[in-house]
């Protein structure tokens, strides 16, 4: 009786979550005010993080809340403030032809049929991963897949992140010198006090997430996005990199994650192993080394993507 009640309650919760997601997505797209649309999109990301928890995917929930909702939202809002005009009221629409509706209905039918025809129970690769956990050097399956079994994907993903920043920098104008910045920006002292209290805490949380990733939900991407959030906060408070740090030290920090990954991946080949095939005895340490470098670079890269401009080296250099 009690179990059945819990079951029904959980199903209602799932139904409510799913409906909230669909409504938020629709309102976010159809909002007359773009600012409102972006705020609704951030809310959508946070509700999606709840859905990940209901689907037993706490790693994805952490990444979604920090990157999907938080950083994407910050990027969207800062872009909106740079646009020629932020007003799109009523939303400019093209007429929706019959063809579009035919396409959507057909796609809905095909995707719906494909999902309904899948078996209700499927092991997938869960057993394979579980049987190989002893060889991975870590105790958390998602970290094992990300950094060991499918390390190649993660290596390429680091390269994608770096590539996005290179493309953004080559398109964006160089930042004004730091003196001009300081005059333009006035930050409330309360925000600055909060900033001083939050930064050490965020660095601590990032370090914890990095360390705990070896045996529980967490890891380099979640930790890196918390670091990036600290960087975004610093940028919003008017902090800029000093001129002497904005040159090659910054670039070194940005490539550190990818470089460390490639270096470790290649170094294990000296012992006769394949690319990214870590020796069993030191796999855990190597993964932590890669993750630490990756966390630092991910945080720095995402924060630089938020600032949107190549930092100036300042008058000193």
């Amino acid at each position: 009786m009690g179990a059945a009640m819990t079951e029904a309650g959980l199903f209602l919760l799932d139904l409510l979550l799913v409906l909230t997601l669909l409504c938020l997505a629709w309102w976010s797209l159809a909002a007359t005010d773009l600012f409102k649309g972006i705020v609704l999109f951030i809310a959508f990301g946070l509700v999606l993080a709840l859905a990940w928890v209901r689907l037993d995917a706490p790693d994805v929930a952490l990444a979604e809340a920090a990157i999907g909702a938080g950083l994407t939202g910050a990027l969207l809002l800062t872009t909106l403030s740079k646009l020629a005009s932020s007003i799109d009221n009523p939303p400019a629409k093209r007429s929706s032809p019959v063809l579009l509706w035919v396409l959507l209905v057909m796609l809905a039918a095909v995707l719906g049929y494909a999902i309904m025809s899948l078996p209700q129970q499927a092991q997938g690769l869960a057993d394979t991963v579980a049987s190989q956990m002893g060889n991975s050097g870590v105790e958390h399956p998602v970290t094992a897949v990300l950094l060991n079994f499918r390390g190649y994907d993660t290596l390429l993903e680091m390269a994608v992140l770096l590539l996005a920043l290179i493309a953004a920098w080559s398109l964006a104008p160089r930042a004004a010198t730091s003196c001009e910045m300081d005059e333009a920006l006035t930050v409330s002292p309360i925000v600055l006090a909060l900033f001083r209290m939050l930064i050490p805490l965020m660095i601590l949380v990032a370090a914890y997430l990095l360390w705990v990733g070896a045996h529980a939900p967490g890891g380099a991407f979640q930790a890196g996005s918390v670091l990036a959030a600290a960087g975004v906060l610093a940028l919003l408070c008017g902090k800029r990199l000093e001129g002497r740090l904005a040159g090659w030290p910054l670039r070194l920090g940005l490539v550190l994650g990818t470089a460390m990954f490639v270096a470790v991946a290649a170094a294990v080949m000296v012992g006769g192993a394949h690319l990214l095939q870590y020796p069993l005895a030191s796999a855990g340490k190597l993964i932590l080394l890669i993750e630490a470098a990756a966390t630092f670079s991910i945080g720095l890269t995402l924060a630089m993507l938020f600032s949107g401009q190549r930092p100036s080296r300042g008058p000193a250099s």
Partner: peptide
């Protein structure tokens, strides 16, 4: 749950 799609989605989010 199967951890492989989870890892794919984390990669996908980034």
């Amino acid at each position: 749950p199967d951890p492989v799609p989870h890892a794919m989605v984390i990669t996908g989010i980034v």
